[in-house]
Amino acid sequence: MNEQFKRRIAAGALIVAFFVTWEALCILLGVSDLVLPRPSQVFTTLFTRINVLWPHIVQTLMTTMVGFACGVSVGVIIGSVIGVSRTAYDTAYPLLIGFSSIPKVAVVPIFVLWFGSGTVPAILTAIVICFFPIVVNIATGLATTEPEQEDTLKALGASKFDILWNVGLPRTMPFFFAALKVAITYAFVGTVLSETVASNRGIGNVMMSASSNFDVPLVFAGLFILAGMGVTLYAIFSAIEGRVIGWATRKNEIAT
């Protein structure tokens, strides 16, 4: 049995143990399901009401993916510009820091004001909340490219674009993937935040209306769905990461 398999088993076991403990504590302490429903109740709700939940799941997932994709694109472009040019770095950084310090809850009403409620403000919120880690990581990756690596291409008469393409970007990949994994979870937060405030669709909205109806198991079902989607997307990016930047982690260093 190899090392990686053992680790997976351990991770799975921890999750199962978490739910079992939760269930046991609820039963032992007699917690009301208006306060904290048992996981078994949550899962039951999830499965019996999947028909109702499904369109909302799709809505939230699509909104998040669109927002994430746009956020990443914007982030990569801004990050590249800032990372390549020292001047742009110094000029734009204060503004970006200021921008990222704004609590994103505060921008949702503004988006609603501009675009009405629904999908558009959710996408925009996802974008503004997830593009910043991408910018910072891409910019850092590019700005810290080793001059020696660039010199090998410069000596050959390579253009700026050649250097960016062959040295800058590949070198930045580990930073980029680290940022992607943060950004995807942020994008979910952004979408759900906006849905909670200003939408009649999506998991965020479901949880909001469920909580005003004291349908606590449904609120938790929403949470579980979000957690599940987050973990799934994280896992997908991890898998891609492993393939793309194996060089950075030096996989299979020693034969076993």
């Binding site: 020696e148 690596q149 010199d151 000596a155 062959n166 040295v167 070198r171 060089w247 950075a248």
Partner: peptide, 11 residues
């Protein structure tokens, strides 16, 4: 050009 420190690209 062969640099003093081999600057092969690690990726």
């Amino acid at each position: 050009m062969a640099f003093q420190n081999p600057t092969l690209l690690p990726w």
